[in-house]
């Protein structure tokens, strides 16, 4: 027997009302039902961080939340970070500037995580940025350009290397 719930929520500013199966997790809901495939699934058990989205402003792993639990919430995915007209956010701009992505698989999780992190910590140290993305795995960049982009987005120049 199929167990379902009717849910309504806001995704990237757009109201959504639909029926979801109870067992559907939020990431699959965003990707399959809403076709917002910017949110990536790397592991589906909370390890890689690629699926990170903002739920009521808090960065969370969307593979570890049921779609039905997002009822009444305001969800922001990577597709919702740029302005309506496509203008990139300062963080996205800094990612482009600093080559903070190669294959791009980790990028949605990096951007959503860092968007929330920089909002709450507008002037972080290099070390704090590294800790903030310690739950986001990137297999391409070696992290240096990502850290550099995050620091650049705060207006600070990147500090080279680990310190």
């Amino acid at each position: 027997m199929k167990h379902t719930h009717r849910i309504s929520l806001t995704v990237n500013g757009r109201p959504v009302e639909t029926e979801v199966e109870d067992r559907l997790h939020l990431a699959d809901f965003l990707r399959r039902e809403l076709k917002l495939t910017g949110t990536h699934l790397g592991c589906e058990h909370g390890v890689c961080g690629a699926c990170t989205v903002l739920v009521d402003g808090r960065a969370v792993r969307s593979c570890l939340m049921l779609a039905v639990q997002a009822r009444g919430s305001d969800v922001t995915t990577v597709e919702g970070l740029a302005a309506e007209d496509g203008t990139l956010s300062p963080l996205q701009e800094a990612f482009r500037e600093h080559h903070a992505l190669q294959c791009g698989f980790c990028t949605p999780g990096m951007l959503t995580s860092l968007t929330a992190f920089l909002r709450d910590n507008p002037a972080p140290t290099d070390r704090e940025v590294r800790e903030a993305i310690s739950g986001n795995i990137c297999r391409c960049t070696g992290y240096q350009p990502i850290v550099a982009a995050a620091l650049a987005a705060t207006g600070d120049e990147a500090i080279e290397g680990e310190n």
Partner: peptide, 26 residues
């Protein structure tokens, strides 16, 4: 019982846990 889901959700996703009912405490 589903609390924050940071352990149960992986177990559900990987089918280590296959409950008939999930009771959300949130």
């Amino acid at each position: 019982l589903l609390a924050g889901g940071q352990s149960l959700m992986p177990m559900l996703n990987m089918r280590y846990a296959m409950p008939d009912h999930v009771i959300d405490l949130n």
